[in-house]
Amino acid sequence: MSDLSSSTSSSRADWASPGAGITGGYDGNSVSLKIIIVFFAGLAMYNSVELVAIILFTFKKYQGLYFWSLLLSSIGILPYALGFLLKYMSVTTGNARWGAIFLLTIGWYPMITGQALVLWSRLHLLLQGSRGDKIMKYTKWMIIINAIVLHIPTTVLTWGSNGDPGSAATDIFVYGYNIMEKIQMVGFFCQEIVLSSIYIIETARILRESLQPGTRRTLQQLVLINGVIIVMDLGLLGLEAASLYILETLTKGVIYSIKLKLEFAILGKLVKFVGGQAVDDTRKASVGFVPADRNSTSIDNNMNISEFVDLNRVTTDVSYPSQTSDSLPSRRKSARQVGRDFEYEFARFEHLEAVTTLDDEISSSTPSSKAANEHV
């Protein structure tokens, strides 16, 4: 037990020692580390606020699993980063330290499991048939079981390890937390590997069948983003394996915010790609995107054209598109009218041709008849 106590006290003095930062904040004199703590925590919170704003202004309807999982996961980054900022900078001390633990705990749940739900909620865009239903079912239960098995024990050990420094009970919790932290990191890493691998495999299968350049570009970006997600998770796993707790927890908020931005960016293109296929109402509702009304005025029509067009040279109203030229019924009507005009002109041409031919025949026969009469 004395070894655990000495390990805990030394970890609080040296941030690079294994397990540093688990109990209490950072009491060292490294100004560089304090700058890193503030920078990474601030960057994660900034990305969280930016993501929430983009999500709320992008979605037309606030519904669907994708919308809520993306929103809650983005919001969760804010208390997670704020809690570790208060903890490491020793802003909250004494009994107030439980406020920082509470913030990082309630932020950790939606940030981790919420991000997995973001990936899961998009799987149906690529999976089809009974095989797709089975994959959706198994991955759903994987996320649920991991949330129960990995979140709850880690939370208990987190609260216990932030008890009174140096006490025997706290040292036991720290020892258990060092083990459980690695288990939950590996578990969530495997979970995201499974989800990202499904995207890569299904996308590669579609790429072999698709010949359209726009489709291939979108799917290649999807493969690239999921590959980047796996690489970033490997980086976090490496920090955890080295027991660099402070760096691992600081970079986790930034990395998860970047992953959410990448996933949000590619989903819009993926929805447009699937939009050309037969997608039922359930899938559309789960995605959360609502196609724009074709009869409504688009954004391009609402632009101020006076910024790039000299209106003094324009004699007609160009504020709105021509209804007769753009609407499908008018185009069909004009096409039928052109067909009728062509038939009429063709018949008129035949009539005039016949009349001209008759006149020529009459005019050519008239002199010969006169000559015959004179001869007689």
Rank of each mutant, 00 (worst) to 15 (best):
Ser2Ala: 15
Ser6Ile: 02
Ser7Leu: 08
Arg12Ala: 14
Ala16Gly: 02
Ser17Leu: 11
Ser17Lys: 12
Thr23Leu: 02
Gly25Arg: 03
Ser30His: 02
Val31Tyr: 11
Val31Glu: 15
Leu43Val: 13
Ala44Cys: 07
Met45Cys: 14
Asn47Glu: 06
Ser48Glu: 02
Ser48Thr: 02
Leu51His: 03
Ala53Arg: 13
Phe57Lys: 13
Phe57Cys: 00
Tyr62Val: 07
Tyr62Phe: 14
Phe67Leu: 05
Leu70Tyr: 00
Leu72Ile: 06
Ile75Ser: 03
Tyr80Pro: 01
Leu85Asp: 04
Leu86Pro: 01
Lys87Met: 09
Lys87Pro: 02
Tyr88Trp: 15
Met89Trp: 01
Thr93Lys: 13
Gly99Thr: 09
Ile101Phe: 10
Phe102Val: 12
Pro110Glu: 04
Ile112Gln: 11
Gln115Thr: 14
Ser121Tyr: 04
His124Asp: 15
Leu125Phe: 11
Leu126Ala: 08
Leu126Met: 13
Leu127Arg: 08
Gly129Ala: 10
Asp133Ser: 15
Met136His: 09
Thr139Asp: 06
Thr139Ala: 08
Trp141Pro: 04
Ile148Asn: 03
Leu150Pro: 01
Ile152His: 04
Thr155Glu: 08
Val156Ser: 10
Leu157Ile: 02
Ser161Ala: 15
Gly166Tyr: 11
Ser167Tyr: 04
Ala168Thr: 14
Asp171His: 08
Ile179Gly: 00
Met180Gln: 13
Glu181Met: 10
Glu181Pro: 00
Gln184Asn: 09
Phe188Ala: 02
Glu192Arg: 08
Leu195Glu: 08
Ser196Gln: 08
Thr203Glu: 09
Ile206Cys: 04
Gln212Ser: 15
Arg216Trp: 02
Arg216Pro: 01
Thr218Cys: 10
Leu222Arg: 03
Val223Gln: 12
Val223Gly: 03
Leu224Glu: 03
Asn226Ile: 04
Gly227Leu: 06
Val228Ser: 11
Leu234Ala: 15
Leu237Gly: 14
Ala241Gly: 03
Ser243Ile: 00
Leu244Arg: 08
Leu247Gly: 01
Lys252Val: 01
Val254Arg: 05
Val254Ile: 11
Tyr256His: 13
Ser257Lys: 04
Ala265Val: 00
Lys269Val: 00
Val271Lys: 04
Val271Glu: 10
Gly275Glu: 14
Gly276His: 13
Gln277Gly: 05
Asp280His: 11
Arg283Glu: 13
Ala285Leu: 13
Ala285His: 14
Arg294Ala: 13
Ile299Asn: 10
Met303Asn: 03
Ile305Gly: 01
Asp310Ala: 07
Asp310Tyr: 07
Ser319Phe: 10
Tyr320Pro: 00
Tyr320Thr: 15
Pro321Lys: 11
Pro329Ala: 05
Ser330Glu: 07
Arg332Val: 09
Ala335Trp: 10
Arg336Lys: 12
Arg336Tyr: 10
Gln337Pro: 00
Val338Trp: 11
Arg340Glu: 08
Phe342His: 12
Glu343Ser: 12
Tyr344Trp: 09
Glu345Leu: 12
Leu352Ser: 07
Leu352Ala: 07
Glu353Asn: 12
Ala354Leu: 05
Val355Glu: 13
Thr356Trp: 06
Thr356Asp: 10
Thr356His: 12
Ser365Thr: 10
Ala372Gly: 02
Val376Thr: 09
